[in-house]
Write a protein that binds this DNA or RNA. Structure first.
Length: 551
DNA sequence: ATGCAATGAGCCC
DNA sequence: TGGGCTCCCTTGCA
């Protein structure tokens, strides 16, 4: 039997549409026409449904000449057509059949019947047969890759929440970074520009610095010369260097020295990486430009270089782990590009890797740097197996649900830095599955060698999507950011999975707001008061938000 | 329980 | 090229 779906009562739906002010007049007419057509030519499906006519309440009919026809027929909220309805039935989402599959984007079937839904290896496009190999690639294959395969260990999956901070940040989490030397320190950035520093082994030792950036902290990177400081790139147009002990920050780059001059000129920094060999911090903005900063003097080097389409966002930067002259970038122009740092100028990329949509992230594999992994908004992970080989087409395309949603931090598939075989990848999943009556969004572990889903981890209490995930560089630990909360996952045997989690390791933070979903909320906070909105009136909050609108 | 708003990318003209 | 409109599984708050 179908569980109750919220908002299903007919009159409410209809009244809601009636009360849509400006749009309603034209839309209603359209709906009316559609329905009339539907009545005439599709009577077969909706024959039990009734079309009723109802006069508008007298108060609002003055401006309308004729009575408004209101259908009580069920209408799909996606395509506005009768005969079916998209949306949740309990914890199961029913697709609109008129739209392409929400997962693989192909027409003709829905997500429920999509072959990629069950087994991700269906999405693997076989690598093209490469008949030509460079000498370098041959040596690599013979001397390195074969060893890697031989010593490849079983994957260790952090599958149980060990500790968490609920409502740690006052806005959604946008990036996570483990401290390079202090094992239990996790840094987190949020949409408001705040920086969290948390020792998750001493769960209560956490700080949030709120005065570093004015809006979205898009990326963070450590300086290996001084791991007491961290770099940040923000949508406020600045790149920062922050002391983790004091929270004191210096601005390395400010792209908006004259302040807010309108949305067309406001510059934001997204991509960020550190070239350790050259001692250069790299940052890129929403106009396609790359900036370089000398990490010793903190001075900007040279002029910015156009590395992606003029006026388009550069979403990510990644330096090669072994070859300091190689840089990987990706952006909203649907490309990931490989660059030679010695010859950085507009149009001089070594290779352009085309995608069908925006590329959220592009990373070299963490050890050899011979592979490239990209996450694109076309719901595909792409892997190029060898940067020495044919880069014309990706070796694999893995269909995976990580759609764009303006209210979610963009998904980024990340390599497991501990996996010497360079095949394990973690990425959050957008679409939910019905797990015992609860819609959950798992975090997926994928073997990109085969395209197979190795593991999907979830917790019945985490009902929000987890787009931000980071695997620890040394420990078997996963940190995930879901909405405003952070979760630390560790591996557990099946037997250990059965007992209830130790709730004492779940910290409650924030202003205690009650979400529509989520079960961590209770009333016994607050050990944590970094949220300046907590004590403000909603009017004050709205005013404050308006002032940040540019971000 | 439900309405609403925040606000990014794509597409059309 | 840029403005305006639309939008499919969000989330938190009023």
């Amino acid at each position: 039997m179908a569980p109750q779906t919220r908002g299903m009562s007919f009159p409410k739906v209809l009244i809601e549409r009636e009360s849509d002010t400006e749009e309603s007049s034209s839309e209603e007419e359209e709906v009316e026409e559609d329905e009339d057509e539907g009545e005439n030519d599709v009577g077969e499906e909706s024959n039990e449904e009734h079309v009723e006519e109802k006069d508008e309440p007298s108060t609002s009919t003055k401006s309308r000449r004729k009575p408004i026809t209101i259908s009580l027929k069920k209408v799909c909220k996606v395509c506005k057509k009768p005969g079916h309805e998209a949306g949740f039935r309990g914890a199961t989402y029913i697709d609109c059949p008129m739209k392409p599959c929400f997962l693989c984007k192909m027409p003709g079937h829905t997500t429920m019947s999509c072959p990629h839904r069950v087994a991700t290896e269906f999405g693997v496009a076989p690598a093209p047969c490469k008949t030509v190999r460079s000498t370098l690639q041959y040596v690599f294959e013979r001397q390195i890759r074969c060893q890697i395969s031989a010593i490849r260990p079983a994957f260790v999956i952090p599958n149980k929440v060990d500790c968490a901070v609920i409502r740690y940040h006052s806005r959604r989490i946008t990036c996570l970074e483990f401290h390079p030397t202090r094992n239990n320190i996790l840094l987190s950035g949020d949409k408001k520009g705040q920086l969290g520093v948390w020792d998750y082994e001493k769960a209560y030792e956490k700080t949030v610095y709120g005065n570093i950036h004015d809006c979205i902290l898009n990326n963070m990177k450590f300086n290996p010369l001084n791991d007491g400081t961290v770099y940040g790139a923000s949508s406020d147009g600045t790149a920062s260097c922050t002391d983790l002990e004091t929270g004191i920050s210096s601005t390395l780059v400010n792209l908006n020295p004259n302040g807010w001059q309108g949305p067309n000129s406001w510059r934001m920094l997204y991509g960020l990486d550190m070239n350790y060999e050259k001692g250069i911090l790299l940052a890129a903005d929403n106009f396609g430009l790359l900036y370089m900063v000398d990490a010793r003097s903190n001075n900007v080097i040279g002029k910015p270089v156009l590395i992606h389409k003029k006026g388009s966002k550069v979403t990510g930067l990644n330096c090669h782990p072994l070859q300091p002259d190689l840089l990987l970038s990706c952006g909203n122009d649907h490309f990931a590009r490989i660059w030679d740092m010695r010859r950085l100028e507009a149009g001089s990329s070594i290779y352009d890797l085309p995608h069908k949509r925006v590329v959220n992230s592009a990373y070299f594999s963490p050890h050899s740097g011979s592979k490239i992994l990209t996450t694109s908004q076309d719901n595909r992970l792409r892997v190029w197996d060898s940067i020495f080989g044919n880069l014309d087409t990706p070796s694999r395309e893995i269909v995976h649900s990580h759609d764009f949603n303006r209210h979610l931090t963009p998904f980024r598939a990340e390599w497991d830095p501990k996996d010497v075989s360079e095949s394990l990848v973690v990425v959050g999943r957008y679409i939910s599955e019905n797990y015992n009556g609860v819609a959950l969004h798992p975090i997926d572990f994928i073997d990109v060698k085969t395209g197979q889903l190795v593991a999907e981890v979830m917790d019945p209490n985490i009902t929000t999507i987890s787009p931000v995930n980071k695997l620890h560089p040394r420990d078997d630990v996963l940190a995930s950011g879901s909405s405003r909360s952070i979760f630390i996952w560790k591996p557990m045997d099946d037997s250990e999975l059965k007992p209830q989690r130790d709730e004492s390791r779940i910290l409650q933070c924030g202003n205690g707001g009650k979400g529509r979903k989520g079960k961590f909320e209770d009333d016994d906070d607050d050990d944590f008061d970094n949220d300046p909105y907590g004590s403000k009136s909603s009017k004050t909050k709205k005013r404050h938000l308006k002032s940040k609108r540019k971000c």
